[in-house]
């Protein structure tokens, strides 16, 4: 049983998703642990998040992404224990 679980783990990467501003309102969370298959891109992560939190569709076209505080494109490959920040702009002042 334990061996089986371990095998599954190796094909998955676990990352921490950070939600800011409107993304935080929509999900009700500031952090979310995401498991995704090895070799996935940030875009794959977003697709998976949209299934979990359909409300995020609202801001899909207007967010900046940062992977481990570095700039990330949709095609950046995520690694285990990465931190993916979803940053919609704030307009208030």
């Amino acid at each position: 049983m334990e061996g089986h679980a371990k095998k599954q783990d190796e094909s998955l990467v676990k990352l921490k998703v950070l939600f800011f501003a409107r993304a935080r309102d929509i999900t009700g969370l500031s952090e979310f642990p995401l498991e995704i298959s090895l070799g996935s891109t940030t875009n794959d992560c977003l697709k998976k998040l949209l299934i979990k939190f359909p409300g995020l569709e609202e801001i899909r076209e207007c967010i900046a992404l940062a992977l481990n505080e570095e700039y990330a494109t949709d095609s950046s490959i995520v690694k285990d224990r990465d931190e993916l920040a979803i940053i919609p702009p704030i307009s208030g002042g």
Partner: peptide, 25 residues
């Protein structure tokens, strides 16, 4: 460059509606 597409109006919140703690701005 960062936000080529504007946020939808629903995502555009104002202090008058959503509130803001004074010291944050």
């Amino acid at each position: 460059c960062l936000f080529p597409t504007p946020p939808p109006t629903t995502a555009c919140q104002r202090c008058a509606d959503s509130g803001v703690l004074g010291v944050v701005p």
